[in-house]
Design a protein around this nucleic acid. Sequence first.
DNA 1: ATTGTGGCCTGCCCGC
DNA 2: TGCGGGCAGGCCACAA
Length: 261
Amino acid sequence: MPEILEVEFYRRHAEGVLGLPVLGVDAPDPWYLKGGLTAAALHDAVVGRAFVAARRIGKLLLLDTDGDGPTVGIRFGMTGRLVVDGRAAIDRLEYGSTRLEAAWQRVQFRFADERAMTVDDPRRLGGVELDPDEGALGPDALSLTKTRFIAALAGAHGPIKARLMDQGRVAGLGNLLTDEAMWRARIDPARDASEIDVAEYAALHRAIRQTLRVLGKRGGSHTGDLHPARARGTSCPRCGGPLERRTIGGRTTFSCPRCQR
DNA sequence: ATTGTGGCCTGCCCGC
DNA sequence: TGCGGGCAGGCCACAA
């Protein structure tokens, strides 16, 4: 699913249409428009303008328009893809589909010469809104310093994994990346955040940085060392011991009870 | 205020 | 071969 790495690929993909005046907007699915946005309002807000910057905070893609125009915020849920001129930024999406069905097009921005940027989302778990609340998100995981990471988790309670996936504390980590980082840091995802000491938070920060760097190079959040073992009855790729499958923070969690303490 | 839970959505996969 | 049920999880509303 799109986690921070995939959305960063989408962001770079979106840079291909910067500066092009928007000629038209299609938004056939009202459910996909969030924060009271309507297809007519979206049309009025962006047609005649150009996107001038493609930013990203965590999993939220932000497209700034020129002049005093609004910022278009796009969330991709777990199956959303960004298609520019008929080409997807990512071919394979875990739990998604490789197909591009016309019925899955939720929002499309059209430019001259038949060019277009489309949000394609079979399961409709994503959404588009104008001027999203950027302040509700914590520091971005791809540019996260150790100091800001520790500050972001200060005072947190509950399973550490749930807090890492809390976008208000750290923005960008989803289920797969969090499991991979916790496995690399050798910390039990069920432990209470308030009982993790500073040295462990430093190790966790290093593991997050490493996970994002390595999996980013490999091509996405589904390329982790732990990922092939995300099935019942599998063993730890490090120690060979049996992996544990639990629900933590409402999400399916794989961890190694021998390696992770 | 912060954390926990359920539901949304629908393609896909497994078992019968 | 077809079909039904379970599963996937990012995000939000709501509860505690």
